[in-house]
Design a protein around this nucleic acid. Structure first.
Length: 601
DNA sequence: AAACTCA
């Protein structure tokens, strides 16, 4: 679809700019990027509808949102066929997030090019009492007709392992701590049950008479771009269900977000800072929250974020645990953070699809010893080699440690005629979004990034992740390389290792070994040398994740909550490995999801 | 170290 970097270079030359002149970062990306345009509909015509969704009646007489009026067949319960067929119906101006009328004939759904078996042998471990059994198909789940149609529209044919297991648990109204590998479909795993649950509760009355709005669900994300991505996905899943999804994050004027909120909100996707702002202004209340989801939950509960999350969850008007349903999702979940997380959960089920913190073996991992001073030229070698061999569409994501070095490396690459851009927290939100878009479309097929881009972002065609600077934490490494090898596709990850990373050596070597990667001999030597004390326990066994409640040392906390043992102890859980019929392992034909888009993290 | 409101 979009240009490769070779094309870009060519076209820039062809564009008679004499030579690809160096453009300073603050002037780059100015031209062709359309600034987020307004949706074709501004929903201005809602005015007179009585509002079910805006408790305050909205501003100016209730800019309410209800699109189920006059659609008896729509909605929950599978009666009739409504939903897709009422477009153009005058008052219903919900944007079609699918853009066009995709053909829903089965033939289209027979996907090609997907790695069907990629996730079939992954072990699943659950613990906690009375774990609902997994399902094999979306049809086995009672999500409601409108949501099922959207799932088909997304071309999801079969649920992924985390979806098969998590969705029944969440539909059973249980709290959940879920660990599943990067790119395995976590977003949909928590969005489907939330949307379905809200459809059931559509009659719920919310307070009215003020400018405060009362969402029924809140989904928190550590970065703005991830919040935006979740919002986009959730809107697809919620299309014509009558469930309204709104996003709120910083770096952008709050007024537009306030107006969106006033039109009604069921699911609020947000970053913590902006949500706290909205709560303090009393423009949002959490009194009616039924669902709380933390994406990248271990990050949300680490040192930098935990106070903000605690404030939102414990010090505002959020119903206490047990009175809401809480779901935590991540690919990594160190046990010390699990311990913290237990504060927010009630009688929860722990679910691990694959080992907690493991990487997928779809990613070919390489580690190269590179002195600090040689990194740039080494990167250039990699990029040159890649230009020869890689698919034209393929993108390269380069991680560095600091915002400054991201700028510096971007500059250096551009000066050397590599089409690069960058994303980090010192750039304006607009610059960040332009950079990400420019990368995604292939206009700038090299993106230099800090950890702002490490988690959750679903960027198709990332063929190569380069850890120019390795992170200090192995879990960050797992998330970074997880930007490739998604949805059953393969990818490459290259890390530059030197003396500064000695502390990471042992964990890195272990991780690579677990993922069946070749560990260079010199790294093994480093690993044994640097094995003193450091590092987190990565567990040992072949199987399953690690529920910290099972680690044997839970006595340490003493009276820390009485729900550690779940309702029925651990009896209900257990490992369901590939060969046994219990889990999804027994499914005959494997595979799911064709043309799988971006509901995958 | 970086991420997370606004002013």
């Amino acid at each position: 679809m979009s240009a490769s970097w070779a094309d870009v270079a060519d076209s820039e030359k062809a564009a008679s700019r004499a030579k690809p002149a160096y453009v300073p970062p603050h002037l780059r990306n100015r031209q062709s990027e359309p600034v987020a345009h307004l949706p074709q509909n501004d929903r201005g015509g809602y005015g007179g509808q009585p509002s079910r969704w805006a408790p305050g009646g909205g501003v100016g007489g209730g800019g309410g949102y209800r699109n189920d009026v006059g659609r008896p067949g729509q909605g929950y319960g599978g009666r009739g066929s409504g939903g897709w067929n009422n477009r153009g119906g005058g008052w219903d101006r919900e944007v079609n997030p699918f853009g066009d009328d995709a053909d829903l004939e089965p033939a289209v759904l027979e996907n090609t090019g997907i790695n069907f078996d990629a996730y079939e042998d992954i072990p699943v471990e659950t613990s906690g009492g009375d774990v609902p059994p997994p399902v094999n198909t979306f049809a086995d789940i009672d999500l409601g007709e409108a949501l099922n149609l959207n799932i088909r529209r997304c071309k999801y044919v079969r649920p992924t392992p985390v979806q098969r297991n998590a969705i029944p648990i969440l539909l059973a109204e249980r709290d959940l701590m879920a660990c599943a590998q990067t790119g395995s479909g976590k977003t949909a795993a928590f969005c489907f049950p939330i949307i379905s649950g809200i459809m059931r509760d559509q009659h719920l009355q919310r307070p009215r008479g003020s400018r405060t709005v009362y969402p029924l669900a809140v989904i928190l994300s550590p970065t703005r771009e991830l919040a935006s991505q979740i919002h986009d996905e959730a809107k697809k899943f919620a299309y014509q269900t009558g469930v309204k999804v709104v996003v709120a994050y910083g770096g952008t004027p709050i007024n537009q977000q306030l107006r969106e909120l006033e039109r009604g909100v069921d699911i609020l996707v947000a970053t913590p800072g902006r949500l706290n702002d909205l709560l303090e202004r009393a423009r949002v209340s959490m009194q009616m929250i039924k669902f709380l989801a933390l994406d990248e939950a271990d990050r949300m509960l680490d040192m930098g974020f935990e106070p903000q999350i605690r404030k939102i969850v414990e010090q505002m008007d959020m119903p206490p645990r047990g009175m809401r349903q809480t779901m935590l999702f991540s690919a990594t979940f160190p046990s010390e953070i699990q311990r913290l997380a237990a504060d927010f959960l009630s009688n929860y089920i722990f679910l691990a699809v694959g080992r907690v913190g493991s990487s997928t073996d779809l990613i070919a991992q390489r580690v190269e010893y590179v002195h600090e001073a040689d990194k740039k030229s080494h990167l250039m070698d990699l990029l040159h080699a890649q230009r020869e061999t890689q698919d034209k569409q393929s993108l390269t994501l380069v991680f560095v440690e600091t915002k400054r070095s991201a700028d510096a490396l971007e500059n250096w690459l551009c000066m050397n005629e590599f089409p690069a851009t960058s994303i980090h927290g010192d750039r304006t939100q607009q610059e960040r979004e332009v950079a990400l878009r420019s990368f995604k479309t292939g206009r700038t097929p090299i993106l230099v990034a800090t950890d702002v881009a490490a988690r959750g972002l679903d960027i198709p065609h990332v063929a190569h992740v380069v850890n120019f600077d390795l992170p200090n934490d192995i879990d960050d490494y797992v998330h970074r390389i997880g930007r490739t090898g998604r949805a059953g596709k393969s990818g490459i990850a290259t890390a530059f290792f030197n003396e500064k990373n000695a502390q990471l050596a042992r964990q890195l070597a272990e991780l690579m070994q677990e993922a069946n990667q070749e560990v260079p001999e010199w790294l093994t030597r480093y690993a044994s040398r640097a094995s003193f004390g450091g590092g987190k326990k990565r567990g040992g066994g072949r199987f399953g994740g690690r529920d910290f409640r099972r680690e044997g040392s839970f006595g340490s906390g003493g009276g820390r909550g009485n729900d550690y043992y779940g309702g029925g102890g651990y009896g209900g859980g257990g490992y369901s490995g590939a060969p046994s019929g219990g889990g999804y392992g027994g499914a005959p034909s494997g595979g799911y999801g064709g043309g799988v888009t971006s509901a995958w993290d």
